[in-house]
């Protein structure tokens, strides 16, 4: 009982500090939580925020879906084939360290600022992390399992479906979680840069006198990240309950 109160206490303390600091600094510098609620909640439901967010999310999910569909097989291939690993690993290392913001001007030249631009930015942000996570998972598969499969005369396809895929389950979930976080970040980077969608809301609210709407928009993003993580945690306990422990680590 006492333990479960502590996190709430921490959040309450931070909210309190924020409220006090906000009242001192004023709305223009840091709006206190009370002002955020009063000013932002009506805005949230008057239809100027949620449809935009839904639209941005749709594009983000398409980009993420592509990244996932591409990253998972690439990760497995890299882990199981030495040649492919040698070919692709330098690119993976480079992709991981490449800043998404640096890619934005390039992608604008290549794709314009529309749908394909946003989707490809999200794709490029997420695909490396998906591939890397799956790669690490697939490398960790105990070779003895595959030998058992071979002893039972499982072909390559069978050993993939029946041995590797179940063994990969927790990593597939982790990959999705890391990938989604990076996809959301990339979405915000891309949209803030070209001032469209949800990023445009953030950009424009930065210009307004009060910081309350801006903070509200940030809180929505925060909730979004938490929601995505929560859904994937639930999914992992549903799809692969036997890996519950490792997936939550």
């Amino acid at each position: 009982m006492k333990r479960s109160l502590l996190p709430l206490g921490g959040i309450a303390l931070v909210l309190l500090l924020w409220e006090v600091a906000g009242r001192r600094l004023g709305d223009a510098l840091l709006a206190p939580p009370s002002a955020v609620i009063v000013q932002f909640v009506p805005q949230l439901f008057d239809g100027s925020v949620l449809p935009v967010l839904a639209d941005s999310l749709r594009q983000m999910l398409i980009g993420f879906g592509l990244a996932y569909a591409f990253g998972v097989p690439a990760g497995v291939l890299m882990a199981r084939s030495r040649t492919f690993d040698a070919l692709a690993h330098p690119w993976l290392s480079m992709g991981i360290v490449t800043s998404i913001a640096a890619l934005v001007p390039l992608f604008i030249l290549m794709f314009g600022t529309g749908f394909s631009f946003r989707v490809s930015i999200v794709f490029f942000a997420a695909v490396w992390f998906v591939a890397l996570t799956v790669y690490q998972g697939a490398r960790g598969i105990d070779p003895r399992w595959l030998e058992v499969g071979r002893a039972f005369e499982a072909g390559p396809l069978q050993s993939f479906w029946k041995i590797m895929l179940p063994a990969l389950c927790p990593y597939l979930i982790i990959a999705a979680r890391i990938g989604v976080l990076h996809a959301i970040r990339a979405m915000v980077v891309a949209e803030t840069f070209v001032v469209v969608g949800y990023g445009a809301l953030i950009h424009n609210s930065g210009l307004s006198v009060s910081t309350a709407p801006l903070l509200g928009l940030l809180l929505v993003l925060m909730a979004l990240g938490a929601l995505a993580t929560w859904i994937l945690r639930r999914a992992s306990s549903w799809i692969a309950p036997w890996y519950q422990e490792r997936a939550s680590a």
């Binding site: 959040i11 976080l181 970040r185 979405m187 903070l215 940030l218 993003l221 925060m222 993580t229």
Partner: peptide, 24 residues
């Protein structure tokens, strides 16, 4: 226990979203 949730919550916000704030 007190500050893990706060840290996680802040971490979930894309840093670029803070840009207008940092400008102010």
């Amino acid at each position: 226990e007190m500050f893990d949730p706060v840290l996680n919550a802040l971490y979930a916000i894309p840093p670029v979203a803070f840009v207008p704030f940092l400008v102010i």
